[in-house]
Structures are given as C-alpha cells and as structure tokens.
Amino acid sequence: MKFTLLINEGPYQHQASDTAYQFAKAALEKGHEIYRVFFYNDGVNNATRLAIPPQDDRNITENWAALGKEHELDMVVCIAAAQRRGMLDADEAGRQGKDADNIHPAFRISGLGQLVEGGIQADRLLTFGD
C-alpha cells in the first residue's frame, strides 16, 4: 500500500513524530511504499539540524534523515508553517535576508499543495498529532 504521512507536532514535546517514524520504518520493512512525509503545524520543527538532544536519547531529526536516505523518502516541510516558526533552508534564508538557516538537508521545503497531492496519490493519508 502507498502511504502519505502527515506530522503535525514538534519533536520531543509530543510523541507524534516518533510514532510516525516507527510506522514508516515498519511499513517499509513490510514492503509498503511511503509516497511522502509532510511536516505541518509545529511538525516543521522536526527538520531542524541544530537540535542537540542528550546523548542517551534518540535524535529525531537524524532518525528521519537516516530513514529518508535509506529509502529515498520525500520529506517535505511546509514553507508557510516553517517561515512562521523561523525554520529556513539556505535558499530561503538568502531570499529573506536572514543570517542563518536551520533545515536539515534530508528535508525539502515546499507548499501545502504537496500535502493535498500526497492525499490524492496515496492509498491512505495518515495524520500523526492531536
């Protein structure tokens, strides 16, 4: 089956991203396809490359990055939600005249149309969050 995952909550504060990650891993192991992972609301914060969680804890962003690399996942961060929360990639930082960027290269930023299109293309769209 082909899945699109929607993640609406930030890392550590909420388990949504962890659950989505575990789901994605299990689904891929079973031979299913993840069409897209879309990060929205505070979920965009999962894409920060600057987080430093304690060494004995999981690193949520790196977990996603590794899974994304292994399976060539399309991991999309909503640009409107990201800008609102100070999440920028290098291109966007340049365009907006900001002096830093923080989005991990495993993720790409794009518009909400990618979420709707993900819902159209997938057999199931699963939401992780409140």
Binding site: N8, Y40, N41, D42, A80, A81, G111, L112, G113, L115, V116, E117, G119, I120, D130
Partner: peptide, 30 residues
Amino acid sequence: KKFMFVNTKAPYGTVYALESLEVVLISAAF
C-alpha cells in the same frame, strides 16, 4: 477524491484552526 477537513478546536488558543484553513484554501486549487 473526497477530502474532508474536520475542525475540532477553537479558532484562537492554538494555531490549528488557522493552519487548517490554509490547507483548505490550497485544496481548492486541486
């Protein structure tokens, strides 16, 4: 496809209502 957006939260207090409406408006283009 049939898309249903279910709004369960008050308009203010959290950002969910505002950001849900943003998805709804984008979905109209599809």
